[in-house]
């Protein structure tokens, strides 16, 4: 199974949301879709599903084009499920009924419903009315519904919302399992480190396009990743000659590539770091969160936030 999007353009009136989006995915892949709020992640899903008007572009599944005709849209919806919003659930239905509804509507078979419930550890509440559920329970239910539909392609928008760490891990494991079954899954999420656990590739949307693709299968370079204040970063740059490709993320993380440095140079940097107080150092490749910070220029690890004030107070 393949999913291909070609030259997709979406605009609301004069406002262009997505411009010339193209990609092709093969089966057994999880794609992370990452961007700040309001940059077009959900719009991309909606456009592929034909829930919104598309200015131009083509959608192919298994190299067959699915146009905007009623017939094609119906066939497309048989192949792709879209993660439901927890606030859209039917309050007076039980969780089991929701899962059964999705199972019957897509596969016509509700034989797997109980095993899905057990897999997601929902047995103790799933037969109650949805109106009694917490946000996390609802989110797991939405996930269970998608699994029950058993379509070859799944769009999961904000799938980890409202989930506690244990359930994030549970859902991540199931996603990996679904990948082994050959599903194509696109996950839009703001849990960036979590995406690195299961995504094959991460698409970064920026300026209405897929600006950058972080492919986990590519060879990765190691970095010194220093969590430090802006002043400490300056101090370090004054004392040590850092490589050209050093990345300064949101003023707080300094990523120093190690591939061009000899062991002695690496040791030199490390020695300098020892003179700086309260600097955390990790060694490893850049992850989604670092790329995110780099691409969108955001302070996602705000080391300075409040710490200096606290120090002053304690003095």
């Amino acid at each position: 199974m393949t999913l291909e999007v070609k030259n997709l353009n979406v605009a609301y009136g004069e406002r262009e949301i997505l411009n010339d989006i193209s990609f092709k995915l093969t089966d057994g892949q999880i794609i992370g879709l990452v961007a700040p709020n309001g940059t077009g992640k959900t719009t991309l899903f909606n456009a592929i599903m034909r829930f919104i008007p598309v200015k131009s572009g083509q959608i192919f599944v298994d190299d067959k084009e699915y146009t905007s005709s009623d017939k094609d849209i119906l066939k497309l919806h048989q192949l792709i499920t879209f993660f439901p919003d927890q606030s859209d659930l039917h309050e007076n239905f039980s969780g089991t009924e929701h899962i059964e509804m999705y199972a019957e509507m897509w596969s016509g078979d509700k034989g797997n419903v109980r095993s899905i419930i057990n897999q997601l550890d929902m047995g103790d509440y799933v037969d109650r009315k949805v109106s009694t559920y917490s946000l996390g329970m609802r989110q797991r239910l939405c996930f269970a519904m998608i699994i029950a539909s058993d379509t070859p392609i799944m769009f999961m928008d904000e799938v980890m919302n409202s989930l506690d760490p244990e359930n994030v891990s549970l859902v991540s494991n199931i996603l990996i399992e679904l990948r082994t079954q050959g599903k194509i899954i696109i996950v839009a999420s703001h849990l960036l480190d979590n995406l690195d656990e299961y995504a094959n590739k991460v698409f970064f949307l920026k300026e209405r396009q897929v600006h950058f693709i972080f492919d986990h299968e590519d060879e990765k370079k190691d970095y010194f990743k220093l969590l430090c204040t802006e002043q400490q970063a300056k101090q370090l740059q004054e004392t040590v000659s850092l490589p050209n490709k050093t990345i300064h993320l949101g003023n707080n993380i300094l990523c120093i590539p190690l591939d061009k440095l000899s062991e002695a140079e690496q040791l030199g940097i490390y020695k300098q770091l020892r003179h700086l107080k309260n600097v955390e150092i990790t060694v490893g490749p850049l992850g989604t969160s670092e790329y995110y910070s780099h691409l969108y220029g955001l302070d996602i690890h705000s080391y300075d936030r409040g710490h200096e004030d606290e120090a002053a107070v304690s003095k």
Binding site: M49, F51, D70, L74, H77, Q78, I80, T81, F82, F83, P84, D85, D88, L89, H90, H98, M105, W106, M145
Partner: peptide, 15 residues
Amino acid sequence: VNHYSVTQGLPVALK
């Protein structure tokens, strides 16, 4: 209004 994402993508023609 209330159940858009649950019902919109169902593989059933609106007609």
